[in-house]
Design a protein around this nucleic acid. Sequence first.
DNA 1: AGAATATAGCATGATTTTAGTGCTCTTTCA
DNA 2: TGAAAGAGCACTAAAATCATGCTATATTCT
Lengths: 148, 148
Amino acid sequence: MLRLTKRSEYGLMALAFMAQSGQAYTSVREIVAKLRIPRRLLAEVLKDLSFSEIVEAVRGPGGGYRLTCPAEELSLARVVEVLEGAGTVAQCTDGSRCDLSPSCTIQEGINLVAQRVKSVLNDFTLAELSDCTTPRPQPVSLAQGLAV
Amino acid sequence: MLRLTKRSEYGLMALAFMAQSGQAYTSVREIVAKLRIPRRLLAEVLKDLSFSEIVEAVRGPGGGYRLTCPAEELSLARVVEVLEGAGTVAQCTDGSRCDLSPSCTIQEGINLVAQRVKSVLNDFTLAELSDCTTPRPQPVSLAQGLAV
DNA sequence: AGAATATAGCATGATTTTAGTGCTCTTTCA
DNA sequence: TGAAAGAGCACTAAAATCATGCTATATTCT
Ligand code: SF4
Ligand code: SF4
């Protein structure tokens, strides 16, 4: 349906939360308390993200998760890819071929679309994602002008 | 999963096919024969497209479907919207609100992403979609032309 | 050492979405 | 009037997604 899964959304919400929490470790408990999302599922998502080294985990008191890189350098594409696989838009866009490809006349076109969609995700950083709602003042035009 | 449904793909394939068939009416039978996709499902898709006036239908011998506007003027966005609804990327992007929106910190960001994705779809016309594969003379077309 | 905190790991059931299909009716053209 | 072609209708099957409980292991602090 051209939608992100909840997994991705939860993951992004959590990451955005962490991005704002500075560089301290953030526990699942905290995130769940603030964001009101299923604890168990979030835990799994974060585990995956930790496995892919998008976040690092520390156990024990005071532990939790933390971004491994600045939010400005983490693209949505990377997160989404980890959380729901490489392919977007259609099935043939991640290398795996579909039964119809021999008779499919739009394969190349679709792949082009997929590429563009992906580049949207690639150009969108976690920083931007959380900045949109961060209680920051809005010198938006300036910031954008410089950032882009 | 950020994927189009089969409905959309089938629809697009069919439309692309029609775009290449000139302005003659094309029957479901023909399309199915060439494209090897489920007949019944395609019929339903085309019915929807006809309801939304993306194609027009004519019954009876020699009838079928035909694009109502030049392929250059039909955006993927329009087709996809008809076939799988307005929302993309997340649930809150089509107006309907989700339970989490009060605590969701990324809503605006996601909406921005959705907007961009949508504009990718908006800028992509059916003409482009089929052009990607059209200009290439197919080495297989001979065999196909004779076989079918 | 022991208590408390927090992630890691595991399997399964419920729900939702998507895909697929058969048959009959109506319209249109020759 | 007969053949072609879309219109309408309801259901089943399969897959993806969401959600959840419990135990184990690692870390820190007292
Ligand atoms: S080959 Fe065609 S039908 Fe198959 S996934 Fe790609 S675009 Fe879709
Ligand atoms: S409000 Fe947040 S969680 Fe709900 S659909 Fe929008 S982005 Fe996703």
